[in-house]
Computed example of a mutant assay.
Amino acid sequence: MELSAGTVEIVVCVVLIFLSVFGNLLLIYCTRRCIGEHLRISFILIFNLAFDHIVNNLVVNVLKIVYASGVGLDSASCKVLMFTTVFTTSLAIWFTLYIALLYCFKVCQVVHPPVEVASTNHRKCHLVLVFALWVVCFAFCSPVVPYTGKNENLTGGNETYQQHGILNYSECKTEYRNEQLEFLYGKIFLVAIDLLPLIILLLVGFRIAHLLWEHKKATYGGIWIGDNTTEAEVLRACKLVLALIFLITSFWISHFVLMHCLKHFKNYYFAPPIMTGLISGYSAVSPYLLTLINYKIKVKAESFCCKGEKKPVSPTAVSPSVEVSPYA
């Protein structure tokens, strides 16, 4: 029996919601268990990124399920759908860039240690920056709300339109007051707040890859080559950050090309599930990589999933005979 387009999209949304909610709740739980007296900056960023992913799936994909089931959306639901999609997508890109910059700085200190030990007491500054990201991103995406509403002028005579129109979200549309506003804000500004950090993210990824290559090739000389678990954790985390960069850029570029460059793609039967997967795929996959980015979070996740195993030795419990780098 052939599945309808709406059924396929509902199945895709349900799978994405399950993967994202389970992975991100596990990530938040493990991060919360790891927070002690010393709150790491990486924990703050991971926690915020996981929360953003949960909001994306519980709002956007749930509304898509409601829409694909034939219930339809009113004007308020269209505003929520459009705003949450734009807001959570941009915020995920910015937090991923923040994480990449953090680990780029860490691996740079491992490969090229400074003469003096750098101060690590910048927690308040990072908290302010994280809060500022939420506020700024909210302010940048808010103008979408008043211009989004329910489309009352749906075509009724075209059978193809009636069959697939509900899956193209034709009920919800964004109309600006004039063409200049649509061009400057809808086509330039909203793309720029995603594209610019993605370009920076790619440059940071190249820098991290170059530093990892330098570390692998370094033997003797002025570069400090330590042999401790803290350095190994930083190097492993940087490799996972590279995977995150690849995922988020590939998802965003693929969605942008299909949405804006292939005008007739969204009329195809298989278009809505693919677009949904590209929009929410990063939020469903990234938490499982983020659980491995920090040793403590990884241990908590393993103990949660595989109860009864012996408790691994903490990476901070290093033998006194082993030299520990203060820079990792």
Rank of each mutant, 00 (worst) to 15 (best):
M1I: 01
M1G: 04
S4L: 03
G6I: 00
T7V: 02
V8Q: 08
V8S: 01
E9P: 03
E9T: 07
V15Q: 02
F18D: 00
L19I: 00
G23S: 11
N24I: 02
I28G: 12
T31W: 02
G36E: 13
E37V: 09
E37Y: 11
L39P: 01
R40K: 15
R40C: 08
F43S: 12
I44Q: 15
I44W: 05
F47Q: 13
N48T: 12
N48I: 10
A50H: 05
V55L: 15
L58A: 12
V60W: 10
Y67N: 07
G70C: 11
V71T: 14
C78P: 11
K79Y: 09
V80N: 05
F83R: 06
F83N: 02
T85R: 10
V86T: 06
W94Y: 08
F95V: 05
T96H: 02
L97P: 03
L102H: 12
Y103V: 05
Y103R: 04
K106P: 01
H112N: 14
H112T: 09
P114W: 03
E116G: 06
V117A: 00
A118G: 07
C125H: 08
H126G: 03
F131K: 11
L133A: 14
P143W: 09
V144I: 12
V145M: 15
P146S: 05
L154I: 06
T155Y: 12
G157Y: 09
G165T: 07
I166L: 14
N168V: 04
K173P: 00
E175V: 15
E179I: 11
Q180L: 15
L181P: 04
K187A: 10
F189P: 03
A192H: 10
D194H: 01
L198F: 05
I199Y: 03
L201H: 01
L202E: 09
F206I: 14
F206V: 15
R207I: 10
I208M: 13
L211I: 06
E214P: 00
K217G: 04
G226Y: 11
D227Y: 12
N228Y: 02
N228H: 08
E233N: 15
R236N: 05
K239F: 07
K239T: 11
L240C: 04
V241D: 12
A243Y: 02
A243Q: 00
A243E: 01
W252N: 11
I253G: 03
I253S: 09
H260P: 00
C261P: 02
H264M: 08
K266M: 07
Y269Q: 00
A271L: 01
P272S: 08
G277L: 10
I279M: 05
S283A: 15
V285R: 03
S286F: 00
Y288E: 06
L289M: 10
Y295T: 14
K296Q: 11
S303D: 12
C306T: 09
C306F: 15
K310T: 10
K310Y: 08
P312G: 07
T316N: 14
A317W: 09
P320A: 08
S321R: 11
